[in-house]
């Protein structure tokens, strides 16, 4: 029983990583006032780029780096459309997902059927051998720790640094920010790239570490869950962390409950993240203690 709990906990943490990466990245993008619905596509590109480079170079680290670059490149395309050509963000984001999924499938054709490399844990064996705590705390690779740390770093950036204030100001009132001399388009492009890189890393985590293989559509909707997560977390990075663990936890617990032989219809569990998000939106609309969405979110901006 204890073994099942520990193992389940470890699975929850590791399964939540891609959601945390993509969600935290999207928080920054949306805080700058840009709604990028292309997360799923950027994750797919990160996944295929990461696997391809890891497979060819033999280095998983290089693969992860490539996944960040791939996600960023795709997000640049989105940035060009929305910030320079001033095309509607929703349309551009949806197109980005379609494009990313298609392109990743095309690139990935030659990589189907190969198994990836293993990925070592960060800590030495003796730490992992500590009963209970060893496995729960020390049995992960460095990317997992990075994903757990990233919400705190990004939160500090957004709320404690000057650059973070600039990002939020841009997202809340682009015109006012512009009149203060902030280069809105530049800030937004950087935020979009950060979001793209993080989504790419989330995809790369899937194809390089979690299930080291490439198959088409392997992101399987996690990009959409990450988007829901951002709203669920009220655009706060640390809440993204808890939300991801909650969403991931429900999914894993549901599988374990099934293996126990208890019957809960799996469809309810699949619905959960979206239901929870809707619920949070309802609560948020009633109370003002939660901050609402960035006020310029989704609105185009151009300097006269």
């Amino acid at each position: 029983m204890e073994e099942i709990l520990i193992s389940g906990l470890v699975t929850i943490v590791t399964a939540s990583c891609p959601l945390i990466f993509a969600g935290v990245g999207e928080v920054v993008t949306e805080r700058s006032g840009v709604l990028n619905l292309g997360v799923e596509g950027m994750m797919a590109m990160g996944a295929v780029g990461g696997f391809a480079v890891a497979h060819i170079s033999g280095s998983a680290d290089l693969g992860l780096l490539a996944s960040i670059v791939c996600g960023m490149l795709l997000s640049l395309l989105f940035g060009f459309f929305t910030q320079y050509l001033l095309i509607n963000q929703v349309v551009s984001g949806l197109s980005l997902t379609i494009f990313g999924l298609g392109l990743s499938a095309l690139i990935g054709r030659d990589f189907v059927g190969f198994s990836g490399l293993g990925f070592p844990s960060l800590f030495p064996d003796f730490l992992r051998d500590i009963p209970v705590l060893g496995r729960v705390l020390f049995d992960y690779n460095y990317v997992v720790y990075l994903s757990l740390l990233s919400p705190f770093l990004v939160s500090w950036f957004l709320f404690k640094t000057r650059a973070g204030i600039v990002v939020r100001a841009t997202g809340d009132n682009a015109e006012a920010a512009h009149s203060l001399g902030i280069r809105v388009v530049k800030v937004r492009m950087l935020s979009i790239m950060f979001g793209g890189g993080m989504a790419g890393l989330g995809g790369g985590y899937l194809s390089v570490i979690y299930t080291p293989l490439w198959v088409e559509n392997m992101v399987a909707g996690r990009g959409w869950v990450a988007l829901a997560l951002v709203v669920f977390a009220a655009w706060r990075p640390i809440l993204v962390l808890w939300g991801a663990l909650l969403f991931g936890g429900i999914a894993i617990i549901q599988l374990n409950v099934q293996a126990f032989g208890l019957g809960i219809q799996a469809q309810y569990m699949t619905m959960f993240p979206y239901l929870a998000t809707v619920l949070v939106l309802v609560v948020m609309s009633k109370r003002s203690i939660f901050q609402k969405s960035p006020r310029s979110l989704g609105r185009l901006f151009f300097a006269d």
């Binding site: 979690y210 198959v215 392997m218 909707g221 996690r222 999914a251 894993i252 599988l255 099934q258």
Partner: peptide
């Protein structure tokens, strides 16, 4: 869904 299939196998 490779991720979910893997999670199920783990469970």
């Amino acid at each position: 869904d490779p991720g979910k299939e893997s999670d199920a196998a783990k469970a």
